[in-house]
């Protein structure tokens, strides 16, 4: 029986970078994995939660739990998220958030605990897309002799809140994507969800530091693009690059993995990815 996963596409991939999600689906299906997409999903609520709007986040979190509970017949398929940060939100935050919010909404202790239990069940099923792929369905793939240098940005939440994420770079290397972290890789790019809107000055100062280190990899290793498993960071950095008139391609890791699958891992195809998406 084929493995089935449920895709959590995330709001940013859905609205702004659907080609990343489409690539993610193709990569999974290419490995014989059946992808389900519970269509009533919206957003994990992290923007609101991190800004201190816990009830507003809980509204979205409850929707998430309900959607993914009913999305699969046996309710046990892994949920693969197209963002490390969103995966961490569901895993680390939902159970306590839904418990506390239920009590805040004057629900009974029993009902609050029930929400917590439901959230925990969901949390156990969630994994970031590339980490999931690394753990499943890769054994059969032949090794590659391609090697395309790219700058890899491992986002803070994936790095610090998802155990095992240090493998992410290796996973890409196995596919011929020569992922290189910039200097001071562990330093935040300044995105920070709502922080990027509410404190644009510092957010941008941090982006500029990050981009300077990224540019060094581009110069020294002829890296052809900037990639990450987190679109939030990527859109923030891309927005800054474009404002600075830089044309460095920016793409989600799923897009590169799809190119690798198609044996199209070349600078020209990477360029095309971005043109295809941007217009």
């Amino acid at each position: 029986m084929p493995i089935t996963v449920q895709l959590f596409v995330t709001c940013l991939a859905d609205m702004i970078r659907p080609q990343a999600a489409i690539a993610a689906v193709h990569v999974l299906e290419n490995r014989g994995i059946q992808v389900e997409f519970p269509e009533r999903q919206t957003c994990c609520g992290q923007f609101s939660y991190n800004a201190g709007y816990q009830h507003e986040a809980a509204v979205m979190a409850r929707n998430f739990v309900q959607v993914f509970e009913s999305g699969s017949p046996e309710d046990s398929a892994d949920i693969v998220a197209l963002s490390g940060s969103c995966a961490a939100m569901v895993i680390n935050t939902y159970p306590q958030l839904l418990y506390e919010d239920a009590l805040q909404q004057r629900k009974s202790e029993t009902e609050a605990r029930e929400w917590k239990k439901r959230a925990e069940k969901i949390a156990h099923r969630v994994q970031e897309w590339s980490m999931w792929l690394d753990r499943h369905g890769e054994a059969s793939l032949a090794p590659t002799d391609m090697s395309l240098p790219v700058v890899y940005h491992l986002g803070c939440h994936m790095r610090r809140l998802l155990p095992g994420s240090e493998r992410a770079e290796e996973f890409l290397k196995d596919k011929g994507i020569d992922a290189r972290e910039p200097e001071n890789a562990e330093e935040c790019c300044g995105f920070g969800g709502t922080y990027s809107f509410t404190e644009p000055v510092l957010s941008t100062a941090l982006a500029d530091d990050k981009l300077a280190n990224i540019q060094r990899v581009v110069d020294d290793a002829q890296a052809v693009c900037l990639t990450s498993a987190d679109l939030g960071c990527l859109l923030h950095l891309e927005g800054r690059l474009r404002r600075q008139k830089s044309s460095l391609p920016v793409c989600h890791v799923a897009e590169l993995v799809e190119l690798a699958d198609q044996k199209k891992l070349t600078p020209a195809y990477v360029q095309e990815l971005v043109r295809g998406g941007g217009e």
Binding site: M15, F197, V201, T204, A207
Partner: peptide, 13 residues
């Protein structure tokens, strides 16, 4: 609004 002060605004696909 804060985003656009320093960064290009992403477009809805």
């Amino acid at each position: 609004a804060g985003w656009g002060q320093t960064r290009e605004i992403p477009q809805v696909a």
